[in-house]
Simulated scan of single mutants.
Amino acid sequence: MPPTSNPTLRQRRLGTELRKLRERAGFTVTEAAAQLGVNQGRVSMIETGRSPLSADRVRAVASTYDCSDEALIDALAAMTGRRTRGWWEECRDHLPSALVDLAELEHHAVGLRVALAMHIPALLQTTDHARALFRAVVPPMRQYEIEHRLTHRMKRQGILHRTGPLPYSAIIHESALRMGFGGPDVRRGQLKHILDMSEARNVTVRVIPFDTEYYPSTGQSFDYVVGPVPQLDTVQLDTHHGGCGFLDAEAQLGKYRTVLDHMESCALDPTDSRDFIHRLVQNI
């Protein structure tokens, strides 16, 4: 396959995981190239996601690196080939690449856990609420930029409604539920939408009230994207400039898994969370 000049997040992640296997095997790039029968430049391109591989080639590389984790090897083999022509590719010309990569990442996920303190989770937002958020961005967006972002966000929500919908767990702090973006009518509609979505079998919503004594948090909203094997999980962080940051180091994944587990333990259970949101709706 010819080199890829602009690899997606998924292609870069495959390269990163192959680099991790090489490093665990104790091979330098030079030694790996000799073992694989390629030049050093090809190894570098593989590890940056710029050299697409076949599934058989990935298995051969994993064997060369003495990887015996069959579940991981199968998952890596499934990531091969050129970029998937999903709906998100239509957005690549008018949205930041990180947002396009996020949609692809969610599409291939096997589960999603999110935690937010100041905003409603993107996949649970109504169109009116999302539009109000985009209008509040600094510096202001042009109207066509808002519409592109809005279309992208609404299409991302399709993973919750597709055949075989994505298991989705959201932890929302009370502060996010009380924010008045768009005014009372928009807020009421947004909270009712969360209640409706929480009835879906694949969606779990938990609320952390203000009076919770213990609130473990990184101080940042984040999504924990569950991969086919734990090594392929990804943490997505919202950045202050409106982009996406992606973390995949083992220590980082472990940290955010622990934070989520602690946050779930101090949140209301799903039934009490629904009752809590219902009371908020009644008081608007």
Rank of each mutant, 00 (worst) to 15 (best):
2 P>W: 12
5 S>V: 15
6 N>Y: 13
8 T>F: 01
10 R>E: 05
12 R>Y: 04
12 R>N: 06
12 R>M: 11
13 R>F: 08
14 L>G: 03
18 L>N: 02
18 L>P: 00
21 L>G: 03
24 R>N: 12
25 A>W: 01
27 F>E: 01
28 T>N: 09
36 L>M: 14
37 G>A: 08
41 G>M: 11
41 G>C: 11
42 R>V: 15
48 T>D: 07
52 P>E: 07
52 P>C: 09
53 L>C: 07
56 D>V: 12
60 A>G: 09
60 A>W: 12
61 V>P: 01
63 S>Y: 09
71 A>H: 11
71 A>I: 08
79 M>R: 06
80 T>F: 08
81 G>W: 07
84 T>S: 14
90 E>N: 15
91 C>G: 12
92 R>Q: 13
92 R>D: 07
95 L>N: 00
95 L>H: 07
97 S>A: 15
97 S>P: 01
98 A>C: 15
99 L>W: 10
107 H>T: 15
107 H>F: 14
112 L>W: 03
118 M>P: 02
121 P>V: 03
122 A>S: 14
127 T>K: 12
131 R>S: 03
131 R>E: 03
135 R>H: 10
137 V>P: 04
142 R>D: 06
143 Q>E: 13
144 Y>V: 15
145 E>T: 03
146 I>G: 00
153 R>W: 04
155 K>N: 13
155 K>G: 07
156 R>Y: 05
156 R>V: 01
157 Q>W: 02
161 H>E: 14
163 T>D: 14
165 P>G: 10
166 L>K: 01
174 E>S: 04
176 A>T: 00
177 L>E: 01
181 F>V: 01
185 D>L: 04
188 R>K: 11
189 G>T: 04
189 G>Q: 03
190 Q>D: 02
190 Q>P: 01
191 L>Y: 00
196 D>A: 12
197 M>H: 03
199 E>Y: 06
199 E>T: 15
200 A>C: 15
204 T>H: 06
209 P>R: 11
213 E>Y: 12
215 Y>I: 14
217 S>L: 06
219 G>A: 06
220 Q>Y: 11
222 F>A: 03
225 V>E: 00
231 Q>A: 13
232 L>N: 02
233 D>I: 01
239 T>Y: 07
240 H>I: 15
240 H>R: 13
245 G>F: 05
246 F>E: 02
247 L>Y: 04
249 A>I: 11
250 E>K: 14
253 L>N: 03
255 K>N: 11
256 Y>E: 02
261 D>W: 10
263 M>H: 09
263 M>L: 12
264 E>V: 10
265 S>C: 08
265 S>Y: 07
269 D>V: 08
270 P>S: 08
271 T>W: 11
272 D>Q: 15
276 F>R: 04
277 I>Q: 02
279 R>I: 13
279 R>E: 15
280 L>Y: 05
280 L>A: 08
284 I>W: 06
